[in-house]
Design a protein around this nucleic acid. Structure first.
Length: 363
DNA sequence: GAAGTCCTGGTG
DNA sequence: CACCAGGACTTC
C-alpha cells in the first residue's frame, strides 16, 4: 500500500537510474495494467495497447515527478533539444501492490511482471543530474549512472560484469510489477498546474496538492475542511482535497494530532486543523527519512520487495498494544471497509452518536 | 456524500 | 474455501 513516502522513494529511484535514457522498446506482459490508458479515445484494446507502445518508443525519460501517490515521467522525443518542454508523460500509479524495478535484461523475470520498458544508453547531461530535491539526504552525483560496487546490491548489473565491448552498462530495463492490478500505467498529456514542475498529467489534474507541496497552505486546508460535511478520516483520504494520504498514514496523522477519525470536519477548529496538517507532514517526512535515506529501504522500494516503512508506525496495526503516549490499548474499528486504528483516550470520539447529525463544536 | 466495483495472494 | 485488504474510479 504505497502512500506518498513510498512513491517518493520510487520516484527518486527512477530519477537516479532511468532518467535521461530513451525507451527503445516496450513489452506489455499483462494488458490489465493499461486499463486506464487511452480511455477517452474510444479505441479497441489492441489499438489502445499499440498507442501506448507508440507513445513511449524513442521517447526520452525526463526527471520523474510526483503529486500525492501519482507518479509520472515526462516524455520528450529523443531527437528533441533537451530544453524543449515535454507534452506528454508516462503516468504511473502503484495502487495497492505496484512496484517499479530497474534492472538489467539478464535479470530473472518477476512473477507479477506487467510491463517492461527497454531503455537505451544514458545521455550525458540528462536525467538525475538536474534533480534539485532539497530533501535528498545524499544528492546523486552526476556520475550516478556509473555503477559502483555497492550498487550490485540493487541487483543492477555492475560495469565489471559486462562483457567486453559493451561500453554502456547501467540498468537497461524499467519494469512495472503489480500483484493485485489496482495500479497501472497510462500515457497522459501534460497540462498546466500549480505543481512545482508547472504541469501535471491530465489524468491526474483532479488530484489536489500534497502535504509536501508549497501550494498546500494551512489556511486553505482549514477552510476546505470546514466546508465539508463528512468525517476527518474520510476527508484525509479524499485525494481531491489533499493528496498522498492512504489508510495507514491517515491513522498515524490522526493519532499524532490526537483527533478521532469520525470527528465531523465542520466542527474542526483552526488550531486542530493546523495540528492535523502538521501531523500529516511529520508522519510523511519521518517515513521518507526512514526509507529515503536508508540503502536497504531504497533497495526494497525501487526493487520492490516489500518496502513498507513500518518502523515509523505508531498506531496502524497496533491494536491491543499500549498507546505510546498514554498506555491505553490501541483499538481497531472497521470503517469504509478498512481498519481504523486509534487510541480511545488520546483520540476522543465525537459527542454525537455514530450516524446521527453532528452538533457544532464551540469556536 | 457515499456505496459499489475492480483484483488476487494470503489467511482463517 | 470463503473472506479480507485496500486506492481510486463509476454510479447512485
Amino acid at each position: 500500500m504505497p502512500e506518498l513516502p513510498e512513491v517518493e522513494v520510487v520516484r527518486r529511484g527512477i530519477s537516479r537510474w532511468a532518467a535521461g535514457r530513451t525507451v527503445e522498446s516496450v513489452i506489455i506482459h499483462d494488458p490489465r495494467s493499461l486499463r486506464r490508458h487511452g480511455l477517452g479515445a474510444g479505441l479497441e484494446e489492441a489499438a489502445r495497447l499499440g498507442s501506448f507502445t507508440t507513445a513511449l518508443t524513442q521517447q526520452r525519460l525526463l526527471t520523474p515527478q510526483r503529486r500525492g501517490k501519482f507518479l509520472w515521467i515526462p516524455l520528450q522525443n529523443h531527437t528533441a533539444p533537451a530544453a524543449e518542454a515535454p507534452r506528454h508523460s508516462l503516468l504511473i500509479h502503484l495502487g495497492m501492490s505496484g512496484q517499479v524495478l530497474i534492472d538489467d535484461p539478464a535479470a530473472p523475470t518477476q512473477k507479477h511482471l506487467k510491463i517492461t520498458l527497454e531503455l537505451g544508453e544514458l545521455e550525458a547531461g540528462l536525467g538525475q543530474a538536474a534533480e534539485p530535491s532539497a530533501s535528498e539526504a545524499v544528492a546523486p552525483s552526476p556520475e550516478a549512472a556509473v555503477l559502483s560496487p555497492e550498487d550490485s546490491a540493487l541487483s543492477l548489473q555492475a560495469a565489471e560484469d559486462d562483457s567486453p565491448g559493451e561500453a554502456d552498462s547501467g540498468p537497461r530495463q524499467l519494469r512495472f510489477i503489480d500483484q493485485r492490478i489496482f495500479g497501472g500505467m497510462q500515457i497522459s498529456e501534460l497540462v498546466p498546474s500549480t505543481h512545482p514542475s508547472g504541469s501535471v498529467p491530465a489524468a491526474a489534474a483532479h488530484i489536489a496538492a500534497d502535504p509536501l507541496e508549497p501550494a498546500l497552505d494551512a489556511e486553505t486546508f482549514f477552510r476546505t475542511l470546514r466546508r465539508r460535511r463528512t468525517g476527518l478520516k474520510r476527508a484525509l483520504l479524499d485525494q481531491g482535497m489533499i493528496s498522498g494520504i492512504g489508510n495507514i498514514y491517515a491513522d498515524e496523522a490522526l493519532w499524532l494530532a490526537q483527533l478521532h477519525y469520525l470527528r465531523p470536519t465542520a466542527t474542526i477548529t483552526r488550531a486542530e486543523s493546523a495540528r492535523l496538517l502538521d501531523g500529516v507532514k511529520v508522519v510523511m517526512l519521518a517515513a521518507l527519512e526512514a526509507g529515503g535515506t536508508s540503502f536497504d529501504a531504497l533497495y526494497v522500494n525501487v526493487n520492490g520487495a516489500s518496502g513498507y516503512f513500518d518502523r515509523s508506525l505508531q498506531v496502524y496495526g497496533q491494536q491491543g498494544r499500549p498507546c505510546l503516549r498514554c498506555g491505553t490499548e490501541v483499538v481497531r474499528e472497521s470503517f469504509m471497509n478498512r481498519g481504523s486504528h486509534f487510541c480511545p483516550t488520546c483520540q476522543r470520539a465525537p459527542r454525537s452518536a455514530p450516524g446521527s447529525a453532528p452538533r457544532s463544536a464551540p469556536r
